Amino acid sequence: MTSSTALCTGRVAAVTGAGRGLGRAHALALAAEGAKVVVNDLGVGIDGSGTATGPAQEVVERIRAAGGEAVAHNGDIATDAGAASLVATALDTFGRLDTLVNNAGFLRDRMLVNLDEDDWDAVMRVHLKGHFLPLRHAAAHWRAEAKAGRTPCARVINTSSGAGLLGSVGQGNYAAAKAGIVGLTLVAAAEMGRYGVQVNAIAPAARTRMTEDTFAQTMAAPAEGEFDAMAPENVSPLVVWLGSPACEGVSGRVFETEGGRITVMEGWRPGPTADKGARWSPAEAGEAALKLLGRAEAPQPVYGAR
């Protein structure tokens, strides 16, 4: 099961939403690099409905069949009890937790005027709250370890999206949640670094249940033997590296990753500025803003905008 590099030998990783898609690929890749894996998945539908234990257990069985170690966790990580039990499962089963990959999520896409409160709340809950709660419980454990003189080599990989970085038409709830994950990543990296915890985020593009319709409309399937740029397995090598000791010193970063491409996203930086040294009038402020916009770089288009 273990690769020749074995970047994660001796480590324990918990991956949320690991029954299918990207999470499944991450869990298998971490196991292949020597990690023991807690495979979390509720087994819900693409819209968050229903539950099933099968997806998580299938990944566990595949890891074990290849000689690795894994355990299934079917708790709801967007609840405090579910997130706490995720960390507890790692500690009770394997005696430690080294890497947390926050990946779980689903979609309820609507244009803003048709987006009701339940669809907003459900998507914000699974993506944003579902990142915060596992992160909070894992961070509390790692801080306690550091204060006890056992400073960990801990890693967190959060999952944002291009929708969270640029926006995406018809996905106001999803884009807002994914943008919030970037903010959460930056704060967690700043707060937890002193305790041996590094926190980064990825913005992946891959073919999963959540994106297969989009890619089917825009990209032809690869011919046999050709590189499948949209395979979720292409994203996992970066996740493995970010979850390993090898990425020492890398924290508070966002990486866009798709196919064979990795991009460091540079985020918001100050652009052109003007300072009057006194209060502007509305007309003056508008004139100054227009001049500054003329000197600024044009933003990248929102996904789906025409």
Rank of each mutant, 00 (worst) to 15 (best):
D92H: 15
A203P: 01
I202P: 01
R150T: 10
K129N: 12
A179S: 06
F215M: 04
G294P: 02
A220P: 10
V12A: 01
G75E: 02
A139F: 04
R253H: 12
A27F: 08
A206Y: 00
V12K: 00
A83P: 11
Y303N: 12
G252S: 09
A35Y: 03
L100Q: 02
S168K: 00
F132V: 01
D118H: 08
A104R: 09
S236G: 14
G259W: 08
D92Y: 14
E258R: 14
V113W: 13
N114P: 02
A278V: 11
P272F: 10
E117P: 04
N103A: 03
G19T: 05
A223G: 15
E33Q: 13
R253K: 15
G196C: 06
T89M: 06
A221L: 13
T159E: 03
T159Y: 02
D76R: 11
F255R: 01
W142H: 05
T79D: 08
M265D: 10
A223K: 13
T257S: 05
A65Q: 06
R20H: 11
N158D: 04
L186V: 13
S244E: 05
E233R: 07
V71H: 01
A296T: 04
G149A: 08
P152T: 12
A148K: 10
E224R: 10
L91T: 15
M265G: 11
G82R: 10
L242E: 03
A70M: 07
A138N: 09
A90L: 08
R125Y: 00
L242Q: 06
T9F: 09
G304E: 08
G167R: 00
R11W: 06
A65V: 07
F94R: 07
M210K: 05
A231M: 06
N103V: 00
G162D: 13
D116T: 14
N40A: 10
H137V: 07
P270Y: 08
A221C: 07
A216F: 11
A163Y: 04
F94S: 09
E61S: 15
S161W: 00
R96P: 06
G45P: 03
M219H: 15
T89D: 11
L238D: 11
V71Y: 01
G164F: 08
A139Q: 08
G267S: 03
A84M: 15
P301I: 09
M230H: 09
A201R: 04
G21Q: 05
T99G: 00
L91G: 14
A288H: 04
M111T: 14
T211K: 01
R261N: 12
N74W: 14
A139Y: 02
A148H: 07
G21V: 04
L115Q: 14
V123H: 05
A146V: 06
A163W: 00
L133D: 11
A206S: 11
A35P: 01
E297S: 15
G267T: 07
T159Q: 04
N200Q: 06
L242K: 03
I202V: 13
S251N: 08
E58A: 15
L293W: 04
S49N: 07
N158R: 03
C153G: 15
R96T: 13
S236D: 12
A52Y: 06
T53F: 11
G252Y: 01
V187E: 10
E287N: 11
E297I: 06
M124I: 14
A205K: 09
V101C: 05
L292S: 10
L293P: 02
A177T: 05
F132D: 01
P270C: 12
N102V: 03
S236W: 02
V59T: 09
